[in-house]
Design a binder for these strands. Sequence first.
RNA 1: GCGCUCCUAGCUCAGCAGGAUAGAGCAACAGCCUUCUAAGCUGUGGGUCGGGCGUUCGAAUCGCCCGGAGCGCGCCA
Length: 582
Amino acid sequence: MNLLLENELNSALVAVFEKNGLDKKFAFVKVSDRSDLSDFQCNGALALAKIAHKNPREIASLIAEELQKIDFIDAVSVDGPGFINIKLKNEFIAQNTDKMAADERLGCGEVDDKHKVVLDYGGPNVAKEMHVGHLRSGVIGESIRRIEKFVGNEVIADVHLGDWGTPMGMILAEIIKTDGNLDKVESYDIAQITEFYKRANIRCKEDETAKEDARKITAELQGGNPQYRKAWQHLRSESIKAIKENYEQLDVNFDLWWGESDAHETCGEIVKIAREKGVSEIDEGAEIIRLEESNKPKPPVIMVKSDGAFGYQLTDIATIKMRYDEFSADEIVYFTDSRQALHFEQVFEVVEKLGIAPNVKLKHIVFGTVNGADGKPFKTRDGGVMNLETLIEMSKDKVRQSLPKAGEVEGYGEKEIEKLTSQIAVAAIKFQDLKNTIVSGYIFELDDFAKFEGKTGPYIQYAIARINSVLRKAKANGINFGKVILQAPEERTLALKLAQIHNVVMRAHNEKEPSIIADYTYNLAQTFSTFYNACSVMNAESAELASSRLTLAKLVRDVLTLMLYLLGIEAPEVMLKAENQG
RNA sequence: GCGCUCCUAGCUCAGCAGGAUAGAGCAACAGCCUUCUAAGCUGUGGGUCGGGCGUUCGAAUCGCCCGGAGCGCGCCA
């Protein structure tokens, strides 16, 4: 059950359209583009007129006349070429607001076709430091995970580690080159492991024989060489430990910690299935599957490389089979940047060809890369990428400057201040990322992740903190929650904005686009701030009005808190301020 | 060369199942703290929506062409 104001309007419109023999496909309203003229508008008359070759204003007038009679509608007008502008009665909006306040889901409905969805995001690699390039996938994925759950779907989130490719052979080769053997591997921590990887990476770029060694070791590792396996286990578990720390700080969560290596056995099965179906062939020593090239040229999928190791596409294909077999997933969604678009096109096509996951919806949500000022994927000045840890610390430092020191405020010792710092810093970072539409990517500006004014996470947290403060004061002054009365324009605007929640969540869900929620959340916080400035609770003209405003304020707080939750952001109870601040 | 994505205010971006004066944030400028937290609010200035052609009563939104940017294109993942 959702509490959209549009529902009643739409069904009223359908009745009017049917009565007049008009195609009810166009019988719907949307939030008005002209809030000065109306709350909602219906553009159906324009579309109908085009088809029927009639005067749009005539059709619009016909509809408007019928709408006038409806009791919850305040005013209807036909404007411009044939827009139908509708204003609702205040009492109707107020009642709806009361219902929202009483509803535990705040007026937001669930999806009709609940299903099971596997989300594949994060995708960190063993032995590689997590950097800002890893931010988007994790942050977006976490938000989608929460949205999916909230709308009623069953969700399984898989981090899907990169733990099975040539980089594994590269790092083992590098360690052997340095130590002469793998005896010391288990004493290495993540910093040392990362160092080895960096050196391996440089070496393999310059030295073809080093690359050759790495490939050989990779193939043997995959083949089951016990010595390599044992060393690799250590690299893997050390990496996971470090990765978990990073994700924990950002509140990015997973149900599964699968990796490419977990698909190894299934990879073998896939190769067999492909052979049986006769879709694979040997070409230049590799076992490949050719793809349709009718619409555009596409390289074939290399299942088994000429050295016997599995190609990375095969692990993704095998993983889909596993998710289908083990979880009977209805939908699998991947979140990676646009550079992997072709990869997933190929993978999905092979899955289809082999029939290993029938009726599973496979989606690749492509997002833009995090770019530097030069428009290319972000690199720091020294050519590296900024690691995630540094970014978080930097943002925290900025937050600390605006907070009181531990002990300065009663009840806020070191632990509490540190928690506040992290909540605000993480909000700044995540919101900064999430407010961008997925596809477009963004320019990485270090300062943006430590900004707390304007369209930022802390701005929204601040609005929530102010409401909490009002609620505390109201309680102390004996003001209770009451029925919503819409008197001031700021109250009305706020109530209308609140009523959009269901549509916002559903759109974000359908489009897999958290920025829709981010945008709305900021909008609502802004609308609230205007209301807050104009409509005092404590000094309201009457007790009824004070109670009404209190209900509105609390509802706003609850909606904002829920929206932040869906973005993966926490809302602190208070936002403290350092002495020297404002 | 082929394919994908993109080009909107000084900067970073929304808007794009065609519609009424193209919106935010930042930056700039002018106001607002004996009144519920000024991480806030109010207001001002700023745009030939990359260029052209077309479809349409109507195009930032759809189609084609051109220009510019980024990414990808068989044994890296």
